[in-house]
Design a protein around this nucleic acid. Structure first.
Lengths: 184, 184
DNA sequence: TTCCGTTGTGACACCCGGTGCCATAACGTG
DNA sequence: CACGTTATGGCACCGGGTGTCACAACGGAA
């Protein structure tokens, strides 16, 4: 009764009930039946509880970028990779949604998300380097566009839970990814 | 000898010398000749020292957006407002550059910047709402594009100090701001 | 001058997130 | 059973941040 995921599940429930800031690590540890010290062995910081699945998502994003389809434009590939990486099975959707809610309700968590998602940016930058473009700033712009679109889509999602996250991600990326620029 | 700007100047010097994390608030307070408690009356958090001028920059951004020129496209207006807001007189350039360096060297500071720049995003979103566009996600996308471009330009700037921040901002915004979409 | 209210400052205690260190319990292996 | 490894817990500590109180500095009014 003490895998990282189980502790995270307990923690997230309390966060939603009582609020992130109003919940101390001791509270979570007590509720999960572990000691405070053990909590910090599972998660480097309190906010990291909300990002248990982050490594898996990053890996899916990386795999999605690598899995090219013939005739697929770089934009289409990035969009597909992001959407696939953030697709959740139905039973995880409410978890993902609660996580997004806490994101935008608690500035500290939102700030932490940026750190966690730096890996996304890096992968996107490396991918964009393979695309010929007139402006040398292009790869960095793609990296930040991926991050911004992910954040923006989640932000909109928290305010319109009925809409599909995947659709929102695709539309945001379509708005934010730089245009092609063989000559710029 | 204890205005907020004077304390900030002392703090920034120590941060650059010794590093942000390796410098405690007590160190800064002692160096500035004030007590720890007084420091926290000047600045809500340690990281806020780096953002003394933030309110002024936000105000300049707001004013820049409001000051429309006849025949100016919304994109041109946003670009001009951002560039003007982040233009520094020569004697402040090195301060701005050091601040940018600390940004990207210290995750905690980078995280804090996101919080501070939420005001920018909000202003940009409101401005974008006045622009007709087929996709209702457009205003939010503009807001995040402004933020992403600012971050990206600063990131590139820290690695290429010789280039002009204003030029980098304009180019990044050109890459990241969504295209027009009267029909989308 | 004295009295008084306001404001800025400092000192102290406290909470909480995070870490290093050490003791010990749990476990598989010989 | 004895052993080494690993997971866990307890403890002390650091640093950021806050609430509370005491006191000094200052200016105005009598």
């Amino acid at each position: 009764m003490s895998s990282a995921h189980e502790v995270a599940a307990v923690a997230q429930r309390i966060f939603v009930e009582r609020g992130f800031d109003a919940t101390s690590v001791d509270d979570v540890a007590a509720a999960a039946g572990i000691s405070r010290r053990t909590f910090f062995r599972y998660f480097p910081t309190k906010a990291d509880v909300l990002f248990v699945d982050s490594p898996r998502e990053v890996e899916r994003f990386r795999a999605g970028l690598a899995a090219g389809r013939t005739g697929e434009s770089w934009r289409a590939r990035v969009v597909r990779a992001v959407v696939e990486a953030l697709e959740f099975p139905p039973e995880e959707r409410s978890w993902a949604f609660h996580r997004a809610q806490v994101f935008f309700a608690v500035p500290a968590v939102q700030a932490h998300a940026v750190r966690v998602w730096a890996a996304w940016r890096q992968l996107a930058v490396e991918h964009a380097r393979t695309v010929p473009h007139a402006d040398p700033l292009f790869p960095l712009a793609v990296g930040h566009a991926v991050l911004a679109a992910t954040l923006a889509a989640h932000e909109h999602w928290t305010r319109h839970p009925g809409e599909e996250l995947g659709v929102l991600l695709a539309r945001m990326l379509d708005l934010l990814l730089p245009p092609d620029g063989a000559a710029g």
